[in-house]
Write a protein that binds this DNA or RNA. Structure first.
Lengths: 182, 182
DNA sequence: TTGACGATATATCGGGTTGATATATAGAGT
DNA sequence: ACTCTATATATCAACCCGATATATCGTCAA
């Protein structure tokens, strides 16, 4: 087995404690890691097959009536592979923020329209914050503290970001006023 | 012209005030928007041709000796297209953070190894912070305030993130001690 | 009870994106 | 003369995203 993609480890992580179908993995990703590591069906299903072939997970058919369904669980090899990956220093960090991109080029707009970008960005951050809060409410007590730490980190981040937008808006407004009174 | 990709607008934004070659666009992206919107040669060169065909930019051959070189500048249509895009509320926000992903699954490791993830993440944030500081030093005075606002936002973000890692490490250490003294 | 609707389940595909590699010339330094 | 880096463009496999297609299940209201 050569290099697995990070998405493969997402799958290993999610089938570690309970067997899950591809559909369930997608659902749980969309409510958790999606905010910092997304995965689509187009990745999940092929990857499940590859991982099963490599012996890192095993699938079993558990049909619901006449609708077929395969759930996967991790093997001992899979657990070891997951832990080995966790021990390596994280590399990838990527961000694509259309808001920051527009703000970067905002000089092409009249100043009042430029400020509107910051207001949109703030609204976007607050919307994310609410989604995360809803997820936080859903979660019961669990002994594994890490998912909650990450979730709370997301909450703090969205709050910091919203606040930054607000401060930058105020700052630009101030500097515009100063200029006028010069 | 149907929907342009956000990367097309990156190009429009960077050829707005001065003519640039594809190579120069890549270089300037790598020193600025790259942290929140990257672009590769594989996107830039084809996109330059599409934009030229659509009349949003115009290219002119400016060879250096016998090495050919095409620089592009924006047209009036291109400027209008860029402004129209800037006026629309930003949508895309994506993040891929292998550190957060590992932290999320860190329960699969012994606690002391899990803490190592937070230490790596903090180091990664501090390294980015230094890169941004180096870029900040390079920039002289310019009348367009937005690139600097975004850069300073990046600095503040990396500081917030590094601090968060530190706090979470301390918190986990504390809770481990409490458990032991129960 | 039938029909509509949303959830479960898997598969596929066009299009965007990445990172690496290939080719070639220019210029600076040793 | 040679080497190394920067400039300049092109290409490609691999990966990833969002949307769509297909089909069954369970539920609830007309």
């Amino acid at each position: 087995m050569e290099q697995l993609s990070a998405t493969a480890y997402v799958i290993l992580g999610f089938v570690r404690n309970e067997p899950r179908s591809g559909y369930e993995i997608k659902a749980v990703v969309d409510n958790s890691t999606r905010f910092f590591w997304a995965a689509s069906y187009g990745q999940i299903y092929p990857e499940l097959k590859r991982l099963a072939e490599a012996g890192l997970i095993v699938g079993s058919d558990v049909p619901t009536g006449s609708r077929k369904r395969t759930v996967y669980e991790i093997t001992a090899d899979g657990e070891e592979e997951l832990r080995a990956w966790l021990r390596q220093a994280p590399q990838t960090f990527e961000m694509r923020d259309e808001g920051l991109l527009k703000l970067f080029f905002a000089d092409a707009l009249p100043r009042d329209e430029a400020l509107e970008i910051l207001r949109s960005m703030k609204a976007q951050r607050l919307a994310i914050n609410e989604r995360l809060r809803a997820i936080e409410q859903m979660k019961g007590e669990i002994e594994d503290p890490f998912p909650m730490i990450v979730l709370r980190g997301g909450l703090e981040f969205s709050e910091w970001f919203a606040d930054w937008c607000e401060r930058m808006e105020a700052q630009l407004l101030d500097s515009a006023l100063e200029k006028r009174s010069e």
